[in-house]
């Protein structure tokens, strides 16, 4: 899923300063699963914003709404009748949400309430870690099913580098060295010799380096 982090309240308050009617807009997709942008968090952020406004003696108009997804036009359309009632929409979906809402409603100011951090998964309740960098050409099966592009700090395809120590990355003892894990996993599978292959330079055209990406599925397109 896409994982995010709430922006500090102070930052959100300063973004919407001087805007009377505010809508906090959640998303039932990834950000609900990672507990940062679902209905629950919409309620908490809206309540905090109302407290701030009441304290400042301002009209506390902060309303709440959560869409099925903010990354699909059909759900964004649900805002059609109400979007223009607001001076600010604070979207707490991933970075896609504020943009889809902005693109659909020309005159509405949209603000991001979360920072989108990475594509990853939950290691345990309340702990998430990055797993994918969406490079557009998955190769993990060659590396014991673990991704050196997203998880090695240097994206080395022929690691591990000389900074790998006791299973950890040179950047921090808190960061596991994925190349250590790749070697262990390939060993466990009896396939260590496969790592002797020199991986040639990667084609980054399919990654963000090739420009903003778009995908068209002719079989689905209407």
């Amino acid at each position: 899923m896409i994982v995010g982090d709430s922006k500090p309240l102070e930052e959100i308050l300063s973004m919407i300063e001087g805007r009377d009617k505010v809508l906090v807009l959640g998303c039932r997709g990834c950000v609900t699963v990672c507990n940062v942008g679902g209905e629950k968090e919409v309620g908490i952020l809206a309540s905090a914003l109302r407290i701030a406004r009441k304290k400042a003696g301002l009209p506390p108009t902060v309303e709440e709404m959560t869409l099925e997804r903010q990354c699909d036009p059909e759900y964004v359309e649900e805002l059609a009748d109400v979007a223009e009632n607001y001076d600010a929409i604070v979207s707490i979906a991933c970075g896609v949400g504020p943009q889809f809402v902005s693109e659909r409603f020309r005159d509405v100011a949209v603000f991001p309430g979360i920072n989108t951090t990475f594509i990853g998964g939950a290691l345990e309740h309340g702990v998430w870690a990055e797993r994918c960098q969406s490079c557009g050409n998955c190769l993990v099966h060659n590396f014991g099913g673990l991704c050196p592009i997203a998880r090695c700090s240097k994206s080395l395809m022929n690691g591990p580098c000389g900074g790998s120590a006791s299973g950890n990355c040179e950047i921090s003892p808190e960061v596991p060295c994925v190349w250590d894990q790749i070697v262990q996993k390939m060993s466990a599978m009896g396939r260590l010799e496969e790592l002797e292959q020199v991986w040639p330079n990667k084609n980054w055209l399919t990654a963000r380096d090739g420009g903003p990406r778009k995908r068209v599925r002719e079989d689905l397109k209407q």
């Binding site: 629950k40 309620g43 908490i44 309540s47 905090a48 109302r50 407290i51 009441k54």
Partner: peptide, 12 residues
């Protein structure tokens, strides 16, 4: 719930 706590403050 966090919301119970916040709403109490919201209500003054």
């Amino acid at each position: 719930d966090i919301l119970h706590l916040l709403r109490s403050f919201e209500d003054g």
